[in-house]
Design a protein around this nucleic acid. Structure first.
Lengths: 143, 143
DNA sequence: TTCGCTGCAAAGGTTTTGCATCGGA
DNA sequence: TCCGATGCAAAACCTTTGCAGCGAA
């Protein structure tokens, strides 16, 4: 018998024109079973337990496929490489989910942003991601 | 004569116990003169114009030194490797600026977070970073 | 049967590290 | 003078890519 999860997976694949391969099904189930913010290596290790011959490249490719299909998100909406913040004024960021370009938005301007979905520069707002920055309990103890 | 910027740089170095080397001064001035969110390679290219013999390793090392000293910030508080978001409920993130660990905070819980500086799990809140996610004008035209 | 998917290995890009030398305090 | 900073080259990651063979539709 097929699980409800597998049925849901096949549905999503059909919806996005994806082949429902065994590797993808296992990857999907593994991701659903994980908590936190797993890295590709961690996911790979889990998938490998069920498909020892799976390749890391396949895991990477399909994580991207899933993200592009909207089946999962990635934690950081930013580019992969280090970027230096050279604007010292309080501000936040507009991040394009397609090209990953980043532009600044003043703090006060963000405050006005409750309703409008499209900004004056044409940026179409989809959602907000808030990072609360600080020090975790463990790091406070160490210092 | 020394510029005000150089004086400020020497002050900051003294404050953080750093040697005020020529390379660091130039890096500092270059960063101050840039806009946007430059990558280490872009910064390196600019520094190189003034110190052709500078190494990329030195630029990397000192960008980190500056970030650790609080002289500059990095754009993404959790850059590094790809992480998959497996929590489908609306939530945001608590990011430790020291160890970069990420934990989830419910959307409703974030709403209550106007005043408290320390959360029940010991996390000490320093600031917020908001990413407004969406599509930039250019990417909307392309699709 | 067909086209997309997989595994493999190699390449590519980014960042870090070890070490001898140099130079700021 | 002395310890930290630099430059170089190599290594260490992380991720992507090319390609031959495989398998879902």
């Amino acid at each position: 018998m097929k699980s409800a999860l597998e049925a849901r997976f096949r549905e999503l694949c059909a919806e996005h024109g994806l082949a429902a391969t065994h590797q993808r099904l296992v990857l999907f189930e593994v991701l659903q079973s994980m908590t936190g913010h797993p890295s590709p290596e961690e996911v790979y290790a889990r998938v490998r337990k069920r498909i020892p011959s799976v390749s890391l490249a396949t895991v990477y490719k399909n994580i991207h496929v899933f993200i592009e299909s909207g089946m999962f998100r990635e934690v950081s909406p930013h580019h992969g490489s280090l970027r230096v913040e050279v604007n010292e004024l309080p501000h936040h960021h507009l991040v394009c989910v397609v090209c990953k370009s980043i532009s600044d938005i003043d703090e006060w301007e963000l405050g006005l942003l409750k309703k409008p979905k499209r900004l004056s520069d044409g940026f179409l707002v989809e959602r907000y991601a808030v990072d609360v920055l600080g020090r975790c309990a463990a790091c406070q103890e160490k210092s």
